[in-house]
Every structure is written in C-alpha cells, then in structure tokens.
C-alpha cells in the first residue's frame, strides 16, 4: 500500500528587508569612514612608552625611509606642506596634524620638516608605536 507522504511546506525566506539593512550599513560606513591615504608609504614608526591613543587623523604628513615627504598621500615638498598647513590653520587655529617619521632617519632629514610644521602654527601629534 502506498504511504501518503505529507507535502513539505515550501520555505520562503523574506529577503526584502535584507537589502534595506545592507543599505543602512553602507550609509553608516560612508559617513564613518576615514580612508587610509598613507598605505603606500613605507616607514617604521619609533616605539616609546607613555603614548596615548589619538583621534583618527584629519590630516597626516609622513616622511618615509628615503626621507620623502608625503602630505595626505601625495608626495610633497616641505614648503608645500607648510603652505597647505598655514592655510588650514588660518581656518582653524587648533588644527591638528599627525606626523609620522621613519625611526631610522637622521636629524638633517627630519628636523626641517618638524620645524616647517611648527612654523605653520599647526598643532602636531608625533605618532609612534606604544612600548610597555
């Protein structure tokens, strides 16, 4: 005798709201994102104790291991950096710039950059790796 099989109910997942959630997440990431503009720069930060975690940088200046200056991800000169920072400081006196310099560079390479940023009037955060 043939046994009557129960008909399986078809499973339908309501996926229409998934798209909405996904778009909300996109909007969140678009507003909260701060794109890394310095990923291409090769430098090793110096380590030091008593460092504090800083806010995400609004503006960053880097000096890589070949003593090349990178302002907001683009290669620049010391004078260009100073000019750009002076303009930003004119709009906001408390403008904060993150400065990362390769730990192996010598004074003749890094000091002119520090002096230029200092002269621009921008407040400076020297970044490093925390040491215990």
């Amino acid at each position: 005798m043939a046994i009557r099989r129960r008909k399986k109910p078809s499973l339908v997942l309501p996926l229409s709201s998934m798209g909405d959630i996904a778009f909300l997440l996109i909007i969140f990431f678009m507003l909260a994102s701060n794109f890394m503009k310095t990923g291409n720069v090769e430098l090793e930060k110096p380590g030091a104790p008593q460092l504090e975690q800083q806010e995400a940088p609004k503006c960053s200046v880097l000096m890589d291991k070949d003593a090349l200056i990178w302002y907001e991800g683009a290669q620049s000169s010391k004078d260009e950096v100073m000019g750009a920072l002076k303009e930003l400081v004119g709009k906001n006196r408390d403008f904060l710039v993150h400065v990362s310099i390769d730990k192996e560079l010598k004074k003749k390479d890094f000091m002119p950059l520090i002096e230029a940023i200092s002269e621009s009037g921008a407040k400076m955060v020297l970044t490093g790796e925390p040491e215990d």
Binding site: F29, L51, Q54, E55, H98, E119, M124, T127
Partner: peptide
C-alpha cells in the same frame, strides 16, 4: 559593505601631541 569594511581605517594611531612654539 565589503568594500567599505576593507577600506575603512578604524585604527586610531598612538602618539603624543607636542607642544612646540610656532617658531620652534
């Protein structure tokens, strides 16, 4: 979403704010 997750930098750097006179 995957693009934003991969490109977003949520890492906050460590450092010290330096108090330097504007002429250094």
């Amino acid at each position: 979403i995957i693009f934003f997750i991969l490109t977003t930098s949520l890492v906050r750097p460590f450092g010290r704010q330096m108090d330097m006179p504007s002429s250094a």
